Computed example of a mutant assay.
Amino acid sequence: MKAIKKSIITQNIDNFKINRKMRRFYVPKSGDVAVFQVLSIGKHKAVQGENGNNTYIFPGDKILATFGTRYASAQFEGYVPTKYYTKYQLLGQGGVVGVLESLHAKFEDIGPTQLKLIGYAVDDENKVINTIYNGVERIQFNPIKRPYEMYLSVGASMDSGKTTTAAFLSRGFMMQKKKVAFIKLTGTVFTKDCSIVRDCGARTAVDFSYCGYPSTFLHSTNEILDILETLLDRVERINPDVVVIEIADGLLQRETKSLINHKPFMNLMDGVLLSCADSLSVNSGIDKLTKINQKPMLLSGMFTASPLMVNEVRNETDIPVFTLDDFTNKISFSSVFPNIKELISVE
């Protein structure tokens, strides 16, 4: 068979056989690994390869990917199939494949990249290989206070700027000589967010795909909390002073809504940062969080690119509004984080 291009979610899958016979009767689960052939190119012209770089794909290519779900209000909605299909769709560049349910209007003309299932990747016992906790120990959530500070970056919606907020928060702490770790807790596998935050100054950055999840959409809150505990165990190797956590999509999204309403989870946080795309969504975001006693300590996001919207928000609330420059301004930063000197690491 022609060389198979591995996607990053399958980076740890080396030894497998291809079972073609079971493709018509086996009902896959999230994380199940399979070999697909590219039929046509749509939105995704590449998969993120096992080294994190883009691996461009063309009709006829074979790729190793996993079945999974996706919730992305500005891109695709898709699910793990419950029956055999002649075509499947590439839902995410990290290697998530499923059945498309809906897509944003901006992609209607191009559509998703279309795939054909060649066969499932199986082990020596003919069992379908699954990436979830494959080679990684699952650690049960323990809601105890940690010896480091934890900050949560949330957004009013997808593409509101919450990753940039997390990245520049990490940079602000780094400039104050603090060791920062970043965790992307929910979403669909794609390492760009971790790379951005790492480039901004985080000593280590990791996401849910470390535990083998192609996506966290439709997984239970208990599962996601165990992912958090497993990832905290991973980043604690650097003895961080601060852990910055990002949860994907908006405040109304299923997993995000569940997490921000989970008191043991939220009690771990030393503060919540809210990112918004425009000034009006700031009001609704503050209202949502305040009603659950999680008033944000800081506001940022896409709206801060507009001085006019910044002024609109500042006229509406006394919560500090941070532009990107404010995160790297010592005076502005210390006004929100007054205990910064007490938390500086001894290098």
Rank of each mutant, 00 (worst) to 15 (best):
K184I: 01
T186P: 01
T186V: 06
T186E: 09
T186S: 01
G187E: 05
G187M: 09
T188W: 00
T188I: 08
V189H: 05
V189M: 03
V189K: 06
F190H: 03
F190V: 05
F190T: 06
F190C: 07
F190K: 10
T191N: 13
D193N: 13
D193L: 05
D193Q: 05
D193T: 04
C194Y: 08
C194I: 12
S195Q: 09
S195K: 11
I196S: 02
V197T: 06
R198W: 00
R198P: 00
D199V: 03
D199I: 02
D199H: 08
D199W: 12
C200K: 02
C200D: 01
G201P: 00
A202C: 11
A202P: 12
R203F: 14
T204R: 08
T204L: 14
T204H: 09
T204V: 15
A205G: 15
A205T: 15
A205W: 15
D207Y: 13
D207K: 12
D207I: 14
F208Y: 11
F208Q: 12
S209G: 03
S209R: 01
S209P: 00
S209V: 01
S209W: 07
Y210V: 12
Y210F: 15
Y210C: 03
C211A: 07
C211S: 08
G212A: 01
G212N: 04
G212E: 04
Y213M: 04
Y213F: 13
Y213D: 12
P214K: 13
P214F: 10
S215I: 02
S215W: 09
S215C: 15
T216N: 11
T216I: 13
T216H: 09
L218K: 14
L218W: 10
H219D: 15
H219F: 08
H219A: 06
S220P: 08
S220F: 09
T221K: 08
T221P: 12
N222I: 07
N222W: 10
N222Y: 07
N222M: 06
E223A: 03
E223D: 12
E223T: 07
E223I: 07
I224F: 10
I224C: 09
L225A: 08
D226R: 07
D226E: 06
I227M: 09
I227P: 02
L228T: 08
L228E: 07
L228S: 07
E229H: 02
T230A: 03
T230V: 03
T230P: 00
T230M: 02
T230D: 12
T230Y: 04
L231D: 07
L231Y: 11
L231H: 13
L232M: 15
L232A: 12
L232R: 08
L232I: 11
D233W: 00
D233A: 05
R234T: 04
R234H: 11
R234D: 11
V235H: 05
